[in-house]
Structures are given as structure tokens and as C-alpha cells.
Computed example of a mutant assay.
Amino acid sequence: MTFSDVVEAVKSLSTDEKIEIQLLLQQYLREERREEIYQNFRAAQAELENGSLKFSSNIDELRKLIQE
């Protein structure tokens, strides 16, 4: 099934069904974003544990770290 097939199928749904699809999509997107945040957290933890995570309060040093 292609994306355009899905769009056409959604267009043919009732208003209530479209609202339900909308709510489901919002939920799925939230879950995906949470997972992405969690994976970023795990990566940062690993960097901290292996000593590659760097901190600084100096703005010039922060800019330099971002460019690396």
C-alpha cells in the first residue's frame, strides 16, 4: 500500500474515524519522540562513562566543542 493509497483511504473515513486516526498518530509520534529522547540520554550516559563528555561554562570553549 502506498502513501497515496493511505491518504485516499483516510479521506473516505467518517469524521469520527478520522479523529481516531488523528489521536492515534499523535500518540505514536509522542512515543517515537520519547524513544528518541531516551536513546539520546543513553548515548550521553555512555559518553559520560567513557570520559568523552565535555562540560564548560566558557562560551568560546562551548562553541569550539560544538564545531568538533
Rank of each mutant, 00 (worst) to 15 (best):
E32F: 11
Q27D: 12
D5A: 10
R42L: 14
N50F: 00
A9V: 00
S12F: 13
K54E: 05
E31T: 11
E31W: 06
Q27M: 06
F41T: 06
E32D: 15
S56I: 02
K11W: 12
D5I: 04
E36T: 14
E32Y: 09
L65S: 03
I66D: 08
L24H: 13
Q26M: 09
E35G: 10
E31N: 12
V6N: 06
K64Y: 04
L13T: 03
E35D: 15
T2C: 02
L13F: 14
R42H: 04
R33W: 12
A44R: 04
K64M: 02
D16Q: 15
R42C: 06
R42A: 08
N40V: 03
V7M: 08
Q39I: 02
A46Y: 04
M1L: 08
Y28Q: 11
D16N: 14
Q39M: 07
N40M: 09
K11D: 14
V7W: 02
A43S: 05
R30F: 08
R42K: 12
N50D: 07
R30G: 11
D5Y: 08
L62F: 04
L48V: 01
L48I: 03
S57G: 10
V7R: 11
D60C: 06
R34K: 15
L62R: 01
N40C: 08
A9G: 07
